[in-house]
Design a binder for these strands. Structure first.
Lengths: 204, 204
DNA sequence: ACCAATTATTGCAGACCATGCAAACTTTCT
DNA sequence: AGAAAGTTTGCATGGTCTGCAATAATTGGT
């Protein structure tokens, strides 16, 4: 990666960090883009070269898109052949960004604090999940061979994203948390959904 | 209802209608609040007495909150005792506003057109569904006697709202469409979810 | 090391959204 | 009719975000 690219990443990072820290400190309404830019040592105009809105700088890069390889494997019926297990595999990749693991976990903890303090941000988060939902639906349609006009894949994708969303709330993002723990939590959530809506007696 | 109240309703209506029609015509970015207010024959300032944002005037009043009676019946295990069927009953009440049925159906058709033309609006719609999701989760927790800290009710509510969201897409909102049709569509969606995640063999 | 091409940053002007405030106006109630 | 309560309006203001054109930094070739 060349110098130019590295600098861009650094600026992006600086803007995000400045935004998060200032706003955790003083609240969303009491921090202007101008101040965020100043803190990151760039002009206000440059802020908008990096992020379309103030919110955007706060939300970070999660959920992202799964890499092409994971996607293809899922579409082709892998890796295990069990639909729910494979779905979980894909979902987990949404959580993983390009950063190193420790940084990313710290980011997640900060973001969660941010959401608690500024519920307006949930709006933007939901929008992001919605975008991912569409991609996931396409992948599910491909895997199951269902016509894209059908909205079954959309439905399954939507509820899968719900599971995702709520599971994230009960994660710790601590150093001791293993992928297996995450997987187990998601699995439990899916099982519960199956029980609630499934053919067997509704627990409720 | 007194004169004052009637006038307020009329103004609100006029603003919504002006917003929807102007923006269907010329696009979200090409219509200012000033123009909307002018079309409705009030000042710009008055617009903001009625709606917090431009989007708000477009989204209308759906989904609304179910009336207290329906809610209580659901919480107490009614009306049929079958969880999914009763859930559907509640969901349907989200769609019903105070207007007369014909007006409401026309509104729904317009709004859908609006969403297709201006996908940015989906954001706001999702936020509304999210609010309803919270209320629904509370009701489910009460009915099932699950602790409110538990996130099972949130999960079930979230996926129910997904079902809702996607079912609405395939409704016609035409004069010939009966409540029974709507119910059948929602029921089919739930059954599909149960099959996808449930204990039986995944269709996929 | 230099030059040219590409790409990033910046300042400026401007449109629009949204809010607070106080004055003018309308409905309501007695 | 007249006071009380609520609504509309204009004005001033602060903030977000965009387009544009000038300036500055990085890159790659020679």
């Amino acid at each position: 990666m060349g110098l130019r690219e590295r600098k861009k990443q650094a600026t992006r990072r600086a803007l995000q960090d400045a935004a998060v820290s200032l706003i955790l400190d003083r609240g969303l309404e009491n921090v202007t883009v101008e101040e965020i830019a100043a803190e990151a040592d760039v002009s206000t105009r440059t802020f908008f070269n990096y992020f379309a809105t103030k919110e955007d700088a706060l939300l970070g890069d999660v959920p992202g898109t799964p890499d092409e390889e994971t996607r293809r494997e899922f579409v082709n019926g892998g890796p295990t052949g069990d639909f729910v297990e494979d779905l979980i595999t894909v979902l987990i990749t949404f959580l993983v960004s390009t950063d190193d693991l420790a940084t990313q976990r710290a980011d997640m903890r900060l973001r969660r604090k941010l959401m608690e303090r500024e519920p307006q941000l949930v709006r933007g988060m939901l929008a992001r999940f919605h975008n991912v939902e569409m991609e996931l639906a396409a992948a599910i349609a491909e895997r199951t061979g269902v016509s894209p006009e059908d909205d079954q894949p959309l439905l399954v994708a939507a509820s899968a994203m719900s599971v995702m969303r709520h599971t994230m709330k009960s994660l710790h993002f601590s150093e001791s948390e293993e992928t297996a723990d995450v997987r187990a939590k998601i699995r439990a959530a899916f099982r519960h959904l199956g029980e609630a809506y499934g053919p067997s007696t509704p627990t409720s």
